[in-house]
């Protein structure tokens, strides 16, 4: 009985740690883009997936959405929805990166502002974040959340 409770507690702590990590990553990713949104839009365009007319609106909206997701995950509010959106956005990023790399496009990732070049390592990193976000979306906020009973 005590062992089961211990495992349960450990699981809840792990979930809380996961959402803090993912939330922190999303907040950091959003923050690094805000200084030069025009440059981020060029990085989005370089993926050659979106039509040119839609690149600017997409680039303008994304950091805001990342920021809201990150904040909610860190605070443990609406955790499952925020984590589901985090997972969905990571799936989008993984798809875009894979398509770009498969097409031989030499581009900057655009993940955290700056000029980090997209590689298959970037894809693996985003896949890992996708799995972690899915775990939180399924498992919930864990301990230390703003709303313990929230699902």
């Amino acid at each position: 009985m005590r062992g089961m409770r211990h495992r349960e507690t450990t699981g809840l702590r792990a979930l809380a740690a996961l959402r803090l990590v993912i939330g922190g990553v999303f907040l950091y990713a959003a923050g690094t883009k805000l200084g030069d949104m025009a440059a981020f839009a060029e990085q989005v365009a370089n993926y050659r997936i979106l039509p040119a007319a839609t690149v600017a609106p997409a680039a303008a909206l994304l950091p805001g959405i990342e920021m809201v997701i990150g904040t909610l995950l860190v605070l443990g509010i609406a955790t499952r929805a925020a984590a589901a959106l985090a997972a969905a956005s990571m799936a989008l990023f993984v798809t875009a990166l894979t398509v770009a790399l498969a097409r031989g496009i030499n581009l900057e990732c655009g993940c955290f502002g700056g000029a980090d070049v997209a590689t298959w390592t970037t894809v693996v990193r985003d896949l890992a974040l996708l799995v972690l976000a899915l775990a939180v979306a399924i498992g919930g906020p864990g301990r230390l959340s703003g709303r313990p009973a929230e699902g």
Partner: peptide, 28 residues
């Protein structure tokens, strides 16, 4: 989340020192 994030994104873009012009196409 999507609605508030979108609104926040538009606001942050407007406040950015180098905002992206929403109506101008961006090419690779």
């Amino acid at each position: 989340i999507l609605a508030s994030g979108s609104a926040l994104g538009l606001g942050l873009n407007a406040l950015s020192p180098h905002p992206v012009a929403l109506s101008v196409p961006v090419y690779p």
